[in-house]
Every structure is written in C-alpha cells, then in structure tokens.
Amino acid sequence: MKKLRKKSVLLKNLEEVVWKHSDKIVGETLDEALNAGIAPNDIRHALIQGFEHVRRRLMSNEVSIPDILLCLDKVTEGLNSISVAKATGEGFPLVIGVVEGDPHDLGKNIIARIYKTYGYRVFDLGRDVPRKLFVKGVQENKAKVLALSAMMSTTMVEMRDIIQEVKVKYPRTAVIVGGAPVDETLARSWGADGYAETAVTVLEETQAAIGRVREGIPW
C-alpha cells in the first residue's frame, strides 16, 4: 500500500514538473521514479498527462505557445531518458515534412514533436522536400499517415500534387495538411483526409483522418 502511494506521488510529481513553474528539473524527478522501479510506460504516461494539462489550457487560451513548447521540451527530455522506443512500443508510422521550396520548418518541428510524444513512429523528412521523397518515404516506411506542411502561398500548391500522387499509389495512407496559408476548404479540394489547424488540435484531427481512411468515408 505504502509502495503504491509512493509510486502515485512520484508520478504526480513527474506530471507536475512538466507543467508547473518549478525549480525541480525533469531529470531529478525522473531518476526518483526510475529508482523506485516505476515502469517506463507509466513514466511516459505521467509526462504526457503533464503535457495534456497545458494543451487543454492552450485550447482555452490560458497559456501562450512558449508555455506549451517549454512543456514539450521537458517531455522530450524525459522520454529521451527512458528511451522512447521502449516506452512507446509500435506506434503508427508517420511521415512528415515541409514541401519543396519552403524553408519554414518551425511549425513542422512542433507538430513532429507532438506526434512523437504521443507515440507515433515519426519519419521527419525535414524541409524543402521534393515530391518524390515524400512518396518514397510513405512507401519505405509503410506510413499510416503523411503530414504535409507549407508556410508560403507559393509553395502550398505543391501539396495538391503530392496528395494526388500518394492517394493513387497508397490509398490507405491518411494525408493531413497544415500551415499558415492553408485552410480546411483548400485541404478538402486537394483531396486530403484532414486539416490540422493548430498544434493543439492536430492529434484529434489526425485520429479522425486515420478513421476516415480506415472506414473508407470521404471527408
């Protein structure tokens, strides 16, 4: 009983160190949890719960984007320490990248990190990625999801061509798009399976897109 209570306190501490302003650092709290014999998956769950706390507050505009990134950095630090591969198991393979000609990758980096945190097996192709590399990435990694990003109106049209090619060759791959110049109407007209408006909603949007592809329901 005492051991269970200690475990519960340690996991709560870990959750709080992610979202609370505290002098404690992730590493110390994590070491305490590991030394107490807590399983990596429980630790991972606690870290994600901490992040969820901030994600919900961002949805209601109580915190700023820097707050959520600070938490994501802490979660990453924690997951790296416990070896993400062991802790996450086999998540959906997901290919992500910024389309050719576009050098803006901060948004993509944030989204890729969120996917990774939530257990997707992320294959990040980087920025300024030619169409053929996206197609190759989907094929080689048997991607369940392809996430495309563009931040310029001049480069976003490349998404349309990538979507068309991928949907013909790999119809079971859900394609989700995002970026400043894109909106849901455009995403639908290009044949995407989903549109991620913000980092806050990307997980739900992606799940919905995967579901639509699995069930064969057009968006």
Binding site: P66, L69, L72
Partner: peptide
C-alpha cells in the same frame, strides 16, 4: 534542439 529556443530565435 529545444523547440522553445527555436521559437525564441525565430
């Protein structure tokens, strides 16, 4: 590596 530092620099 830090997303927050990337955002700040950006």
């Amino acid at each position: 590596e830090s997303l927050l530092r990337q955002l700040i620099l950006h």
